[in-house]
Amino acid sequence: MNALRLLVVYFRIGLLGEAQYRVNFLFQLFETGLGMASVLAAIWVVFSQTDTLGGWKPAELTALIGIYFIVLGSINVMVAPSLQKFMEDIVTGNFDYTLTKPADAQVLVSLSEVRIWRLADVLLGAVALVVSIVRESMVVGWVEGGKFLLALLAGAVMVYSFWIVLATLAFWFIRVENILQIFWAMYTAGRWPVGIYPGWLKWTLTLVVPVAFAVTVPAEAVSGRASGTSLLGALGLACVLFAFSRWFWRVGIRKYAGASS
């Protein structure tokens, strides 16, 4: 598939671009580490006053934080920088070049920039996840592991689709990079299980900004509380959201080219 060949080329380019600044990886580790420490400190403060939070034990929450950082890093390696660049390209007009290329514009746009060192987020997230599983000797069998991966996949697709929808708004509004703040603001709420939030916020984080599916549901899968139906629901929703984002992107392109739709 050509999209895969493009992915390889762009990853190589990203690695080349950043390999000259290897010390950046250390700084990224430092910053991510600090970020994680600050989240863990908040959890520590909360659990100094209570034993469970909305039914979640401390280790389950740290596993959730691990997943939070894994997803965060995945977004920051490619999706966020690429789509940010896309928005700048709309303003500068460089996006015109993308449109003259004989490849799917959405694929080109989604791959265009790689921040390889943000893999530090994924790395530290994975460490937190594994440490919490091991320390609490949680039993993660094949079923839980499979469910977890499926849930993570569904969450990733939803987050990606959501980003495409936000980025597509750039065809209508110029200073759209601010719209991305909606995502980041909402995403920080994913550091806690969305189940504890009041109804309106819970639904927003589930259906409007797919934070629940990206973080909480995979964490539930790891701790063995995700039901098969909720997983199926997540996968179904992922497909729907992906199809919608694709359609919306096409509408955006038509609008950019000034087609009366």
Partner: peptide
């Protein structure tokens, strides 16, 4: 839009502490 984050953060901690 930037205000969304400022508003959401206290809501999050308010919820956490109310739950506790």
């Amino acid at each position: 839009i930037w205000m969304i984050g400022s508003i959401l953060e206290p809501v999050v901690y308010l919820t956490v502490w109310s739950t506790v």
